[in-house]
């Protein structure tokens, strides 16, 4: 089980829960299960998000491993200029 933090308005789409517990070993499983368990999140996840693991930002990184030790946040997809 990993704990995932959702940003405020995303939490609203997941029945108002800012923190979810998900059974996942990597980012791929995490995103898949999130969408399955909380269909409200699906459109946002499909549009693309960034995942922060212990303060490091990941875009498109399915195989990045995660465990209950990690702090995991789903964030809007980070871009730059």
């Amino acid at each position: 089980m990993v704990k995932v933090m959702l940003w405020g308005s995303l939490a609203a789409l997941a029945e108002g829960k800012p923190e979810l517990e998900i059974e996942a070993k990597n980012i791929k499983q995490l995103l898949q299960r999130l969408a399955e368990d909380h269909p409200g999140l699906k459109p946002v996840l499909e549009k693309g998000v960034s995942v922060s693991i212990d303060g490091m930002m990941y875009n498109d990184a399915w195989f990045e491993e995660i465990s209950s030790e990690n702090e995991i946040c789903i964030l809007p997809r980070i871009e730059g200029g």
Binding site: W7, G8, S9, L10, A12, L13, P18, P43, V44, P76
Partner: peptide, 21 residues
């Protein structure tokens, strides 16, 4: 998008975001 409850009328506001703790 991302507004709960989902709006029933269209507007010029495309997205809503909220952050914090």
């Amino acid at each position: 998008a991302n507004l709960t409850p989902k709006p029933t009328k269209p507007s010029n506001i495309a997205n809503f975001y909220e952050f914090g703790h």
